[in-house]
């Protein structure tokens, strides 16, 4: 099974790096969509279904927290697991993200292995490529 992924970050370079890491990790992807902020992400999600969202926090127009809130209010979109990838690695920010529905948190700067590990944990795919993903059981963080 291949997955659709949405990368949300105002840095084109960072989106490119994350995309490259995902491809190199062997994670099976169908579409890898990109958005430069939360508003663009929500627009994309109105016409595309994705299996996981990787999102920055500090972005212009609509930041990551505002996007998480908007997703949580949407009966359909709230089931999409969101992984926050941000420089804001302080514990209170992670708690805030988790409280808004984020499934996991990766701190920038990251190693390629960090993204690979979290992707596999959150979406629940084994090394054999078989999906074990079960909605609502996506490797939640406990603080």
């Amino acid at each position: 099974m291949a997955f659709n992924i949405l990368i949300v970050d105002d840095s084109r370079s960072m989106r490119s790096v994350i995309k490259k890491v995902i491809y190199m990790s062997g994670f099976k992807t169908d579409q890898c969509l990109e958005a430069a902020n939360g508003r663009e992400a929500l627009e994309l999600l109105s016409s595309h279904w994705v299996d996981i969202i990787l999102s920055d926090i500090n972005m212009p127009e609509m930041n990551g927290f505002e996007m998480l809130e908007a997703l949580r209010k949407d009966s359909l979109l709230k089931s999409i697991p969101v992984v926050v990838i941000s420089t804001e690695g302080r514990e209170d920010r992670m708690r805030e993200a988790v409280a808004l529905g984020a499934k996991s948190f990766i701190k920038k700067p990251f190693l390629p292995e960090d993204i690979k590990r979290v992707l596999y944990e959150v979406i629940g795919v084994g090394d054999d490529g078989e999906s074990g993903y079960d909605e609502g059981d996506g490797g939640s963080l406990d603080f």
Binding site: S11, N58, S86, T87, E88, G89, R90, E91, P109
Partner: peptide, 18 residues
Amino acid sequence: VNMACGNFLAKMDDTGRF
């Protein structure tokens, strides 16, 4: 610079809000 600053602030004050 965004990453460097975020990383520095997390090292300085992990509980602070910036």
